[in-house]
């Protein structure tokens, strides 16, 4: 190990502090999910699984969890079914208007969710589409389309088109070529972005907030509980959500990484 300059030591200090800033809150959430005291203060009381037991006995929370799983699954399927062809067209065809099409799909990713949520609420109201899980599924799949499109586009831009030409020359039709040549080439990008869409849809608040009907999703349930007061039950379900999200996201990021 070479000797560090003063500025490198300072940099290490800032980096260490930032890492603590990033992870201390998550540690707090997890620690207090096992703490028997209902008030979240130090020093810690006894270790307990009570809050997890309460989560498992909380009907409303479990229903909301079920709703969230349904919404996230349906939205993910839709983002893939719509997003992959959209990415293919943007990659393959040169037409005026396609640039606008791409920008529109990517727009909700850099726009505050509330704008998209309100646009959809206004639209549904004018059309008379009832608010509820169906509306939320349409909303999520549309707002998250950009995730699949951008990731698949990145992968397609590095895809060797000669392979497709070879397949056509060998007599395969366009559909066969897609399933046997193109799809295997972009498969990991599709799976990775699907996992990401699922996680984001599962946690989504700003769009859901405006489209929700009588059925709550899990984040909406937690959000409305929080406004009444906080209980360690939230920490328990939160710990479970974070654990599941971490697994999905690490899987997603490693699928999306380029192996060159």
């Amino acid at each position: 190990m070479h000797k560090l300059y003063w500025w490198q030591r300072g940099l290490l200090g800032v980096v260490g502090g930032t890492m603590v800033y990033l992870y201390l809150p998550i540690v707090v959430l997890v620690v207090f999910s096992f703490n028997s005291n209902a008030v979240m203060s130090l020093p810690l009381a006894e270790f307990t699984f009570d809050w997890y037991r309460k989560v498992l006995a909380n009907e409303a929370m479990l229903t909301a969890l079920g709703n969230s799983l349904i919404v996230a699954s349906c939205a993910t399927v839709l983002t893939v079914v719509i997003g992959v062809p959209a990415a293919l067209v943007i990659d393959r065809y040169r037409l005026p208007g396609l640039g606008l099409f791409r920008r529109t799909i990517l727009l909700p990713l850099s726009l505050p969710g509330i704008v998209t949520g309100i646009a959809m609420l206004n639209f549904y109201r004018q059309l008379g589409i009832p608010l509820g899980l169906g509306a939320i599924i349409i909303g999520h799949s549309t707002a998250l389309l950009g995730i699949v499109v951008s990731q698949v586009l990145t992968r397609l831009s590095r895809f060797n088109r000669r392979l497709e030409e070879a397949s056509q020359d060998l007599g395969a039709g366009p559909i066969e070529t897609f399933f046997k040549v193109t799809l295997p080439g972009i498969r990991s990008a599709i799976i990775g972005s699907a996992l990401l869409s699922f996680t984001l849809s599962f946690d989504e608040i700003p769009v859901t907030y405006f489209l929700t009907g009588r059925d709550n999703t899990l984040p909406m349930y937690i959000y409305s509980t929080l406004r009444r007061g906080i209980t360690p039950e939230i920490n328990a379900i939160g710990t479970l959500i974070i654990l599941a999200s971490l697994v999905l996201i690490v899987a997603s990021v490693s699928m999306l990484k380029d192996k060159d």
Binding site: I205, I230, N235, G238
Partner: peptide
């Protein structure tokens, strides 16, 4: 990775 982990919970934890 925290970027994609529940936005709501990451805001909530500062409340506690």
């Amino acid at each position: 990775v925290p970027l994609w982990v529940s936005y709501l919970l990451r805001a909530y934890v500062w409340k506690i």
